[in-house]
C-alpha cells in the first residue's frame, strides 16, 4: 500500500502532467472564431518597403471583393516584413482602418527577438498588432485550419 504522502505526490505529478499541454497551448495564438466563407492569410516577409503598401492594398481589395462580412483576413509578418508592424510605421493609419473592419495583424516573435539582439534594445509593435511565437508557424497553423495563403 502507498502511504498517503506518496499518494499526494503521485496526484501532484499527474496533475502537472495533465496541466502541461494547457501551459504549452498558451504560448500559441488561438485560432480565430469565424463563420466567414473565405479565409485568407497574407504573408509579408519582404524587405522591400513597397510590399508594405501592396499587402495592405491586397487586404483592402479582398474585403471589397468578397464583402467585409464574408472574408476573414490575417496579415502575418516575419523576417524583414515585420517592419510593417513596428511602432512608428506611417502605415498605421491604414492598418487601424483595416483593423476596424476586422483584419488582424500578427508579428513574429522570433524575428522581433532577433531584431532586438541586433539593435541592442527591444522593439515595440504598433498598437493592435498581435505577437505570435513564430510567423511561419502561424501561417501554417492557419493554413491547416482552412486559411488560404497569399503572398503579394
Amino acid at each position: 500500500m502507498l502511504t498517503k504522502q506518496t499518494q499526494r505526490l503521485f496526484a501532484l505529478l499527474i496533475g502537472l502532467v495533465l496541466a502541461l499541454p494547457v501551459f504549452a497551448a498558451q504560448t500559441e495564438a488561438p485560432l480565430p472564431d469565424t463563420f466567414a466563407a473565405h479565409k485568407v492569410v497574407l504573408q509579408i516577409s519582404d524587405k522591400d518597403p513597397s510590399k508594405q503598401n501592396l499587402v495592405l492594398n491586397v487586404a483592402q481589395n479582398i474585403q471589397r471583393y468578397y464583402g467585409v462580412e464574408n472574408v476573414d483576413i490575417e496579415v502575418v509578418a516575419f523576417g524583414p516584413g515585420v517592419r510593417l508592424m513596428l511602432e512608428g510605421n506611417e502605415n498605421i493609419k491604414r492598418m487601424k482602418s483595416l483593423m476596424a473592419s476586422g483584419v488582424r495583424f500578427s508579428a513574429c516573435d522570433n524575428t522581433l527577438q532577433n531584431f532586438a539582439k541586433q539593435l541592442g534594445h527591444e522593439l515595440k509593435v504598433s498598437e493592435g498588432v498581435t505577437i505570435v511565437p513564430a510567423g511561419a508557424g502561424r501561417i501554417l497553423q492557419l493554413n491547416a485550419a482552412g486559411w488560404q495563403i497569399l503572398q503579394p
Binding site: 480565430p32 498598437e127 498581435t130
Partner: peptide, 26 residues
Amino acid sequence: MQKNYTTVKKSALLIALAGALTAPTA
C-alpha cells in the same frame, strides 16, 4: 515586449477607439 491574444472584435473596437482619441504622429 507586449504579447496579447485578445479577440479580434475586442481589439478592433479598442483600436478604433484609440484611433479616434489619439492625435496622429508628425
